[in-house]
Design a protein around this nucleic acid. Structure first.
Length: 460
RNA sequence: GCGGAUAUAGCUCAGUUGGUUAGAGCACCAGUUUGUGGCACUGGGGGUCGCCGGUUCGAACCCGGUUAUUCGCCCCA
């Protein structure tokens, strides 16, 4: 017999874990709803045509592909088969794959349902995604994203809403975070100085790692790659990044001679609009303009956002990447043939949020609620009475179980104890005769016998 | 795609310079007088030491290969 096992990077979620995951999802979902977002679910399986080419070459490599059904090799190209050229053969033997994120399926959905959708379209989506990445800490091959997006509106008020959602949801979870944002246009302003898009893209990739490898780390990479004016650009950007507050950063950008262009103005204007919108809102978490924030996905074109943990209850050695990210993407539905629909969205990384809250030990008691009442029968003949009484408690919304069968009382109480059940209601010959029930509080150890019709009042 | 680490009971792990019947804790089952949990005690079941090969009188231990897991890099939620 084979020993059972799981594919790497996947996990089972046992009852205790699921309770907590549902708790997190509940808070995030409630927040989405409170901001007027409605749910959407899309299939795990998408056509590869939908997925490919959306995440860059690296992303395409990380797509989980599904083998076609039937005798697919019969139709495959003979030469490619003989050459054992997997890469070239793949398109002939695989037409479908698992979704890589929730944003591209959203774009597909919107394009396919444009006649039914009223813009601006606000949807949320909480589902797993799959990546054939090499797993490591905080990185799984199957993980859940919680996305909220708004399509069909260019107003910066959407960005303001989304930042507010981040702040509210993490406040609700009791996890302190730092919400960082930036505007791609501010970075695009550097492109002419760096002499071209290729250099600029590489520059953005490098500066995005600044919080990981530090100023010198980025500088060394820039030197190694010989990006024109890269060293000066990075010095300037790093200087601005170190300024105390957002206003000073914006002023410094405004005064930087090397990057004066329309892109810069657009970025500064929109950041100004954003800050103006939220100036009267209290925030539970810090919100900072981080001019080194670029974010990887190629489709972002405007504001970008990222959430990193900033909770001192998290052990210092527990390092994990960001737990949320998002931004504006002006051209997303364009690849599916629908132009001029601007979108902006955010994502919560459920698995990492769980890992952090677990490491910090901040799951509240309510996230672990279980059965509250267990009926213990001394004799099978007491079970109909137990069932009737359990039915009443359940109607009252109290999670109740009847222990299956008349096992030894020790065994029944053991079960209740292990499951963290608060009340054991014991029905024996004596109780049945008297019309009473013995209820034992398993936390305090106290026990009393009351008339059966007083049970509900006593427990609730 | 690259590198490091690990692999022994259901779980977490010990296992001496290679030595005869491979251990512990937890979990599980039973019991410590028949209707009272957490604690304690007693007993019990459970392992082809990841897999294949080599060295050796003898391998969980040494060597080679292989597979899996995991941590990091690349990349990225």
């Amino acid at each position: 017999m084979d020993k059972p096992s799981l594919p790497s990077g996947t996990r089972d979620f046992g009852p205790e874990v699921m309770m907590r995951r549902k708790y997190i999802i509940g808070i995030i979902e409630a927040t989405f709803k409170r901001f007027g977002f409605l749910p959407l679910e899309t299939p795990a399986v998408e056509n590869l045509k939908t997925l490919q080419g959306k995440y860059g070459d690296e992303g395409d490599q990380l797509l989980f592909k599904i083998l076609n059904n039937g005798d697919f090799l019969a139709k495959a190209d003979e030469t490619l088969l003989q050459q054992r050229d997997s890469k070239a053969l793949t398109p002939q033997i695989s037409d479908r794959g698992l979704r890589y994120d929730l944003t591209v399926p959203l774009a597909r959905f919107v394009v396919m349902n444009r006649d039914k959708i009223h813009f601006p379209f606000r949807r949320y989506q909480i589902q797993p995604v799959w990546r054939a990445d090499r797993p490591q800490k905080g990185r799984y091959r199957e993980f859940w994203q919680c996305d909220a997006d708004i399509l069909g509106s260019q107003s910066i008020s959407n960005e303001a809403d989304l930042l507010q959602i981040y702040d509210t949801a993490f406040a609700g979870l009791g996890l302190k975070v730092n919400i960082r944002f930036n505007h791609r246009s501010l970075l695009d302003a550097f492109a002419p100085w760096l002499q071209g898009t290729a250099n600029h893209n590489r520059f953005m990739q490098l500066i995005d790692k600044a919080d990981k490898i530090g100023f010198d780390g980025v500088m060394n990479e820039i030197k190694n790659e010989g990006i024109p004016n890269g060293e000066d650009a990075w010095t300037l950007l790093h200087h601005i990044s170190g300024l105390a507050d957002t206003d000073q950063k914006l002023i410094a950008l405004q005064n930087a001679e090397a990057i004066q262009n329309d892109a810069l103005q657009k970025g500064i204007t929109e950041i100004g609009q954003l800050l103006n919108l939220i100036k009267n809102l209290p925030t539970a978490n810090t919100l900072t303009l981080d001019v080194t924030l670029a974010r990887g996905l190629s489709y972002y074109t405007g504001m970008v956002m990222e959430v990193v943990p900033a909770d001192n209850r998290i052990p210092a050695d527990f390092r994990i990447g960001s737990i949320g990210g998002g931004g504006r993407y002006d051209n997303l539905t364009g690849v599916f043939g629908l132009k001029d629909v601007s979108g902006v969205g955010i994502s919560f990384g459920l698995d990492r949020i769980y890992d952090l809250m677990d490491a910090a030990g901040i799951f509240p008691q309510e996230s672990m609620q279980t059965t509250r009442v267990l009926f213990c029968c001394m004799d099978e003949s007491a079970m109909p009475t137990a069932f009737a009484m359990a039915g009443k408690l359940r109607e009252a919304g109290i999670a109740t179980e009847v222990y299956p069968g008349a096992a030894k009382l020790k065994k029944q109480l053991d079960y209740a104890n292990n499951k963290g059940i608060q009340w054991a209601c014991i029905l024996g010959e004596q109780e049945i005769t008297d019309g009473t029930i013995s209820i034992k509080n398993l936390e305090s150890g106290t026990q009393e016998t009351l008339p059966q019709n007083q049970l509900l009042a006593h427990i609730s």
